[in-house]
Design a protein around this nucleic acid. Sequence first.
DNA 1: AATGAATGAGTTTTCATTCAT
DNA 2: GATGAATGAAAACTCATTCAT
Lengths: 198, 198, 198, 198
Amino acid sequence: MPKLGMEPIRRRALIEAAVEAIGDRGGLDVTMGQIARRAGVSPALAHHYFGAKEQLFLATMRHLLGQFGRAVSVALAPEHDPRRRLSLIVAESFAPAQFAPATVSAWLAFYVHAQNEQGARRLLRVYARRLHSNLVHDLRHLAGAEAARIAEGVAALIDGLYIRRALAVDATAPAHAPETAIALVEDYLDTQLARSRT
Amino acid sequence: MPKLGMEPIRRRALIEAAVEAIGDRGGLDVTMGQIARRAGVSPALAHHYFGAKEQLFLATMRHLLGQFGRAVSVALAPEHDPRRRLSLIVAESFAPAQFAPATVSAWLAFYVHAQNEQGARRLLRVYARRLHSNLVHDLRHLAGAEAARIAEGVAALIDGLYIRRALAVDATAPAHAPETAIALVEDYLDTQLARSRT
Amino acid sequence: MPKLGMEPIRRRALIEAAVEAIGDRGGLDVTMGQIARRAGVSPALAHHYFGAKEQLFLATMRHLLGQFGRAVSVALAPEHDPRRRLSLIVAESFAPAQFAPATVSAWLAFYVHAQNEQGARRLLRVYARRLHSNLVHDLRHLAGAEAARIAEGVAALIDGLYIRRALAVDATAPAHAPETAIALVEDYLDTQLARSRT
Amino acid sequence: MPKLGMEPIRRRALIEAAVEAIGDRGGLDVTMGQIARRAGVSPALAHHYFGAKEQLFLATMRHLLGQFGRAVSVALAPEHDPRRRLSLIVAESFAPAQFAPATVSAWLAFYVHAQNEQGARRLLRVYARRLHSNLVHDLRHLAGAEAARIAEGVAALIDGLYIRRALAVDATAPAHAPETAIALVEDYLDTQLARSRT
DNA sequence: AATGAATGAGTTTTCATTCAT
DNA sequence: GATGAATGAAAACTCATTCAT
């Protein structure tokens, strides 16, 4: 029952299957076959649309990255107060879509993968830069020269909280709840900014 | 001419070769053959001593973990002031041996690996708990009820700074120097403790 | 808007694309997709018209064979002098259309292919027999009983010169120019016939 | 029952199996599995020793080429008369080992393969140059300036006779017997040299 | 103690071919 | 008449692991 216009549907299904498979497995050691089966297609079709496994991985990263980037953009659009904007970025970083165990797990796997692969590295770099410039943009108003340093601290804290979530025995424990993570980062921002203001 | 007492020598050589190989590659996708060649022995010998690849990985993690644990113990032994003890833990976390690019890279790879493998997960958990209790032990004196929260923040920050180092374009840039990392964590401790004291 | 009479157009386009593709690649390891793309159609259409890859190959051989056969027929029609007819056959064998690098390359590939495939073998045999009988027909007048032997020599020489052209580093070098090849075969004919006449 | 020093034995067995497989099949479209099975080993072992299919093919070509080259060297060593040396080269070209159907078939396949692959092309070129210089060396004494031209004719004739043998319906027919081929080339030499001498 | 020899099991990738539209 | 969609089957290649010596 082949129809027309299946390409975008299949691509998306395969990418989502990839996130799931990688998230479940907790690493990139998933086979094209496993991903394809999850998407309900043959491994050959995955190759047909993506050319190679690495390309599917890159598309998957782009998907995750884009999802987050758009969510942040949407959230920030109507808000102009710097401090509140920072909170929105933080909140978005730990929003359900990003902080779901499978997504976090996939993220971490891609981070490691980026140590090997040019393409993945580049993608991650773009994302890191965007997050950094978002943070610095608003921090500048509040902390002036300290903006870059605080941004670095916030980014490291977020990355660290992701890792800890990925390795948590029980991701549903309050210690790893998104609220806890958000509170920690907000607190960091508050204390850092309080000092700057002095 | 079979030599006596080769076992510990070979084990150590293989473990060190594994750290190097994994660090260089930036992931666990190294073959037993590559590790064995680096250690100057045959792949068969690696199996002879470790039984399986996963066992070699576990031994390698234990090696890394033990190395860090011992360094912290040694550093803390003569020091009794809580605040200075915290500084020593932080300093040790970014000491050359731990913060060398290859080591950081291997660390990260094992973190991801732990998402799959029971054994690796357990090992990492032990380490996390030890670090946590070390931190809490000293923080208790300085921040009372806030100890656990601050410990969590410090740990996340350290993990985050490791990740960022692993993905740095240029690990020798000042932004990723150990001093910068140490300063960031120390600053976190200072601001958090300052507030507690109030 | 289905067009009428597309079949012959598509068939021819596909066959010509096959010659080009095989010639370029220097072997039959071209995919239906590559051939189809060259012809500006989908791989499915190639199957639609030819049923299978092997059938397309056979049609391509028939095309090449027929082209040569017709050229020879046309050239020989007005000529009745045996010696001059022989020259025309030789000339036609090295005419631009036959001796173009891509064509020579495709020829050679089909020769090898014929070792596997019944159909291809048969086709090649028909061509060989026709060339042989053409040669013998005229040689009989000039060399009597020696006709068959000389024909064999001429045929072998032509095949050999094709191979050498196919493997030439530089097909445009004078050593591999059609004139050189023609001169060599003509010389063979001359010397062989000179002796017969004695 | 693994023993030591198997490598050369396996390499040779695999190379010989490759000649047989290619010869039987009449082309390079044989799988590593087929070759390995013939050699009585697993496909993995073939890769272990040769690294890749193409490498096995190159080794096989080198084997065939070397075999012929050595046979010619041995045959020519004690002979100093130019004309007789030419006959030895011709005789060796059609000696049983070279002219066996499987070998001829493999040759032809490699010729076509050389149109694609650098390595194979280079190997064939070396062989062609050696044959050419061998022929020219002796022809120079007998035909002076004509040496190169005659050598080219002889070489083309030999190649052509190989092809014709490869495509023969019945390789045992007198028309394709080595004696017939030798006679044809000898006759070419005789007539060409007779003219030169005049 | 150490290794060369060997392989089974798996994974990516390619492609001819089919089919519903 | 023409094609996008889809796949089965096969092939190269990799690698952890075993074993006899």
